[in-house]
Design a protein around this nucleic acid. Sequence first.
DNA 1: CGCCATCTTGATGTATTTCAAAGAGCGTGG
DNA 2: CCACGCTCTTTGAAATACATCAAGATGGCG
Lengths: 227, 227
Amino acid sequence: MTLNPVCAICGVRQSAVCSSLDDAALGSFAAKGVQRRLKPGETLMRAGDRQDTCANIQSGTIKMSRVTQTGDEIILGLAHAGDLVGRPLAADSDCDIIALDDVTLCSFPRSAIEAQMDSHPALERLILARALDDLDAGRRWQMRLARGSALSRVAAFLHDMATRQPAGTSEFSLVISRGDMASLLGLTIETASRQMTLLRKRGIIALPGGRRIIIIDKMALSAAAEV
Amino acid sequence: MTLNPVCAICGVRQSAVCSSLDDAALGSFAAKGVQRRLKPGETLMRAGDRQDTCANIQSGTIKMSRVTQTGDEIILGLAHAGDLVGRPLAADSDCDIIALDDVTLCSFPRSAIEAQMDSHPALERLILARALDDLDAGRRWQMRLARGSALSRVAAFLHDMATRQPAGTSEFSLVISRGDMASLLGLTIETASRQMTLLRKRGIIALPGGRRIIIIDKMALSAAAEV
DNA sequence: CGCCATCTTGATGTATTTCAAAGAGCGTGG
DNA sequence: CCACGCTCTTTGAAATACATCAAGATGGCG
């Protein structure tokens, strides 16, 4: 069996969970997947919904969020190209999953992923390894929320986003609004904005306009991110 | 093969990850484990240490914590009877693991767990399912840290601890000190204490002394825990 | 060009921290 | 058995970081 043409040109062939499958295994698996696009703001699934698809993000950024009793949204995390969204082994979604920009997905029935895990231990192993890594990352973030100042949260977020860019890139666009950023960091819009200008005034970043950002001093940014 | 005598009397035989193994599989696996005891305050492993054991908690409570640059401890979570501590698939620990009270463990070389996962898919599947559940629970907690008031955090913690007791039990002992509790909740000792007395004054709980607590009105406690 | 949403900035309020000290609980040794 | 000293907890008063309320400024887009 030869590699599915869709997979042959897939930008996340090496970084998504599919990387655990050889070309032969991928061929039959890929046949069960469909390509899908989301526009900014479009919802893939909602908390509490029956959740019968999982998807690899091929490009773009997604937010995972929940809505409180009082009706405001809390962003729990972002997912990027190469990440798997949706939860294998669970019948219902525990959060809303919403595109932040133009997103392309490779979407599978949850049952197909689960069947593939059954027959291909390497896939299950990689999904497990990622889940455990996510758990560690979540705990690090929890530490920041528990004790970090507003400045440290904003700095840590910017540092993460900067680190995610191709090496050597110091200017890029934040895909999320100040409001989403604040929600992700557990702050208000105003506080998030103030910390941004504080970092700008300290010469650590520049804000050329829109959602663009220039990292002037990544070391200082990292230092500001310390808890 | 017959059931290992140690497993026959194990209190968490049905709730630990071992429950995914039948008696035959358990027999050979159990031979690689050793029983171990920890006294209150005793450390099982430290963040950054080479981590070559994983252990099922048979009784007692453990805290997972990290130490910040400034030297103070942040508690990331608790683990109870039936939980697996230590991280399969990772060479190093990402947090300190310390006993809070008298703890009994069933400890395995990490390599033994990993080998058992290789040969027994049901074990790996259960570990994966737990990791994903922990991830969900972590996100719920993250939401509380991001937006919840001090009162809501304390109430949520007490509600969790109450729910963990045998059905019908309304009085029990908190295994952790106010200091640990505050650290877990991302608060100061003083604030944690004040919220406890606030709940007491509202008639939701009683504090007969020491670390004992009586849940008088669990509904009200749950309501106070809302974000 | 002008509208609308998003972002920034300022002034004020408040929950939580910080600083400080008194009060319980508990084991030790007289 | 009680006094002493230790740690943990509670309570009070002052300081502060962040939220809230309220305008402006900026930028995208028709």
